[in-house]
Design a protein around this nucleic acid. Structure first.
Lengths: 351, 351
DNA sequence: CCTAATATGCTCGTTGCGAGCATAAACTAA
DNA sequence: TTAGTTTATGCTCGCAACGAGCATATTAGG
């Protein structure tokens, strides 16, 4: 439009603020928040770093560590994240990856209109479990406290058959015409697929889908905060895991899901392990994250065959039986294979 | 701090703006931009919708459609995206998913300091190719014009051996001490792994890694815009694909990568297909996206065996030979399997 | 020395998949 | 019309990956 008048224009940036029709774009300003799901495995328990504050309107106390992103201070999002995580908790993050950006208004507000506009960018970080003394803030807490139905290490969690299945099925039956039009997949089908009802296989990666389904059905405590109709309709709502403030449980669900999927095609388990470990310890860590479905001998074949580890030469005694060889991560595997990981296949746990 | 003084506080939101230590958070405001990589397949060519503007300082004209996100107008990011995509291009998006959020300052500016603070959230949308008449803005352009080294449909692209391999190898040799300290993986190894030199397999999903490597080596035109040293050092830089403005080529690379990976475990190819199609057409579409590595008979076995399609009963004549049965997508497969997709395995194309 | 517990090595049968052979049903050029 | 070409479709063979179980090794504890 006024392009010719503006003299020698600054190259790309001005354009970056215009539409393809060369209309200037009105960027309404919002704040950027970074949320970190910092995950470790301590004593065969997958844990996330949470900070406890005061209870909110639904009694939730826990939040994930978060901080603002200030583009003036930090060149990159990840840089900003590492900086305030260090300040707040004393941790130096190793592996970190971006998860998802949430901006849904009303998700964390009773009064959507009055909501300040904050976009939150979720990050997943994997680290070795450092003792509580190393932390200046926050505590490690098992992620299965927030998602008890995800813990299949002692078989199918009872909570599914006892609390979830009957309620989701009754919720599916009173399918409103609105929700029928909403999507092509009916409520009952979504429930079947997510939670493995009626012989459907359990997919350990569908952590987020399961939580969102419970949320929609008003079975997650967070739904009551938003004042969802579905939440009001339950006369007695079972306690399905610990709630978190804001939408942090959703971010944690995304983090678990990503961890479970990534562990299979990238050697990220080793971010969670000490430098030396036995194969059984490694297996227990994988199972803590994924659920148990590998038989010991085959796990060994898998991991050794893929060249993911090498023996250190030492052994670990006092294991209660024959001493176990100690291994370390073979970093060179990154140079050899395009997608190394603990390629455990889909569990046949259909039940 | 002043929590007690503030009377009955609004529940979660106020807290959302505080650190765990209950310090109020200073959110510096930034603009949110949404970038859409809208992908289709037209005449067996994977295409993206691009808008052409005037050349920037490096002569790049093309951008991906983008628009601002205004939280006052739209509840969700995806809602905002669909709205302005419709306004700008006339397209109604079907499938859309979030890709990545970029906020790297200096990535799209000569003067990082003067850069306005815009965070851009990239989206991938898959759609059926609609003729140019259906578009009010933008053109479809083969994504291989921007990434010629990604097109393996006629074998290994010559550009790799002729232009990329020698230059990346010479770049790897003058590895600065700085870059050695930077990461554990040496330049030469990264190049080998990304581009499949020296017998390493080609991984079609590493689209972004390859582009970033070329960018770092100063071989992507965009690197010159930023004034990278590496870019200046080439006396003659080969033309490695069309550049785009801002960091849009990076977003497109992310989109290609995601498309290539997703097609394998979710039935997203069908978003790109007409309602009825022959198996050969389906195969050609998959190959357009991934590169060719499936033999016709096995592809049929794979797709039919997975229950992804069902015959319509009709046939398509004038194919030049025996008429081909027409198929349609079997939507019920979504209700049956946890992760249906065209499970083509890693191509053995090591060359 | 015997038993329990864990670590480790090996085999066997099934399955998924790459690759090729063979047949069916159209079109095309003499 | 007929032979040759082209594309579609069905089937089989062999290898490699993997789930599952058997067998052996090496410690601790009584």
């Amino acid at each position: 439009m006024n392009m010719e008048l503006s003299g020698r224009r600054k190259p790309s940036l001005e354009k970056f603020q215009r539409t393809p029709d060369n209309e200037p774009i009105e960027h309404s300003s919002v704040g950027i928040g970074l949320n970190a799901a910092i995950v470790a495995v301590a004593d065969n328990e997958p844990v996330a770093l949470v900070v406890r504050g005061e209870a909110d309107s639904i009694g939730a106390t826990d939040i994930l560590p978060f901080g603002p992103f200030n583009p003036r201070e930090h060149r990159t999002l990840e840089g900003g994240l590492r900086a305030w995580v260090h300040d707040q908790t004393g941790l130096d993050l190793g592996y970190a990856e971006q998860l998802y950006t949430f901006a849904d208004r009303g998700r964390h507000a009773e009064h959507a209109e009055a909501a300040p506009h904050v976009v939150s960018i979720g990050y997943l970080a994997l680290t070795q479990a450092v003792g509580h003394h190393g932390l200046t803030n926050g505590v490690w807490r098992s992620w299965y406290q927030y998602f008890p139905w995800e813990d299949w290490r002692r078989g199918r969690p009872e909570i599914i058959a006892r609390d979830i299945e009957p309620r989701l099925k009754s919720w599916a039956e009173k399918s409103s015409p609105q929700s029928v039009a909403q999507g092509p997949i009916a409520r009952a089908d979504r429930a079947r697929i997510c939670f493995g009802f009626d012989g459907m296989p359990w997919d350990e990666e569908k952590v987020l889908e399961r939580f969102e389904l419970l949320y929609e059905a008003g079975l997650a405590d967070e739904a009551a905060r938003e004042g969802r109709n579905a939440a009001r309709e339950w006369t007695e709502r079972p306690k399905l895991g610990l709630a978190m403030q804001s939408d942090h449980r959703r971010i944690l669900a995304t983090a678990i899901s990503r961890t479970r999927s990534k562990i299979k095609y990238r050697p990220v388990v080793f971010e969670l392990m000490p430098d030396e470990f036995t194969l059984y310890e490694l297996q227990k860590t994988v199972e803590a994250i994924l659920g148990p479905h590998l038989h010991k001998q085959n796990f060994r074949r898998l991991v050794e065959g893929a060249g993911l580890v090498e023996p250190t030469g030492d052994v670990k005694t006092r294991t209660g039986g024959r001493p176990a060889k100690l291994f370390r991560f073979r970093r060179e595997v990154l140079l050899e294979r395009p997608a190394p990981g603990v390629r455990v296949s889909a569990p046949p746990s259909r039940l």
